[in-house]
Design a binder for these strands. Structure first.
Length: 240
DNA sequence: GCGACAG
DNA sequence: ATCTTGTCGC
């Protein structure tokens, strides 16, 4: 009754992250070492995507002038994917932008936004990558381990690896290969439109991540949750 | 050594 | 990510 086991309530987000995924890195070297240490903890498992009814989308917008950023988390409900909950957080980057260390920049604010949600999503979608990362531990993996929930990453441009162009029809895909390893899929979410790159974050496997991404793209190239989160953080940034 | 490099 | 107008096409 003294709050010793209140699951991190009242703690700073960075402290909660430390509880879940380790000490906060002081520099890029430590950050890379942390990723290498955590990468083996990512679990790939089948997800019953048909049973998924609440999906959260995560995204961040940056202020042009100062160093403010706004992180947004939006929860959408199947089957129409209308927004049922959302939260935004105004923060500052705690890490410089370094390709491959992207998560140290955005994850703290994103996790804080997720913590403010009143609805627990069945799965989350990040604007970025998971295993399709130099050390197999991108943003979606950071978020997945921190929350211990199913998370997948959907990127707009390739980062690591290469893939042949998938056929022009929606739902066609090709493996994203890096060093002879399948790290994700290049997936056509809309016929005749530039494909996206799907990868595993945590507690989901590639087939499930692909199926869920297709279910989340009934109208546009990017998953509906990510689009909504993008809209919200931009709007919040303009208002602030 | 050089280039490329999620958002 | 953000800076930026119009323009072509469904």
């Amino acid at each position: 009754m003294d709050g010793a086991d209140r699951s991190g309530e009242g703690l700073a987000v960075e402290e909660r992250i430390e509880q879940r995924i380790g000490a906060w890195p002081a520099d890029a070297g430590e950050a890379r070492a942390l990723q290498e240490r955590l990468a083996p903890l990512v679990r790939q498992e089948a997800l019953d995507t048909g049973a998924v009814s609440l999906v959260a989308g995560l995204d961040v917008a940056y202020a042009p002038g100062d160093d403010r950023l706004v992180a947004a988390a939006v929860v959408l409900a199947a089957p129409e994917w209308e927004a049922v909950d959302s939260a935004t957080v105004v923060s500052r980057p705690r890490f410089p932008y370094v390709p491959g260390l992207f998560a140290f920049r955005e994850a703290p604010a994103l996790l804080e936004a997720v913590a403010q949600l009143r609805t627990a999503p069945d799965a989350l979608v990040c604007d970025g990558f998971g295993l399709a990362h130099p050390r197999r531990f991108g943003l979606a993996c950071h978020v997945g381990l921190a929350l211990d929930r199913p998370v997948l990453g959907v990127g707009k441009t390739p980062f690591v690896g290469r893939a042949d162009a998938p056929a022009p029809e929606r739902s066609s895909w090709t493996p994203l290969l890096d060093g002879g390893e399948v790290v994700g899929r290049c997936l056509r979410t809309r016929s005749g439109v530039k494909p996206v790159y799907v990868s595993v974050g945590h507690r989901v496997d590639l087939p499930s991540a692909t199926a869920l991404t297709l279910r989340l793209t009934p109208h546009y190239r990017l998953p509906e949750p990510v689009r909504q989160a993008d809209r919200l953080c931009r709007k919040r940034l303009a208002a602030a």
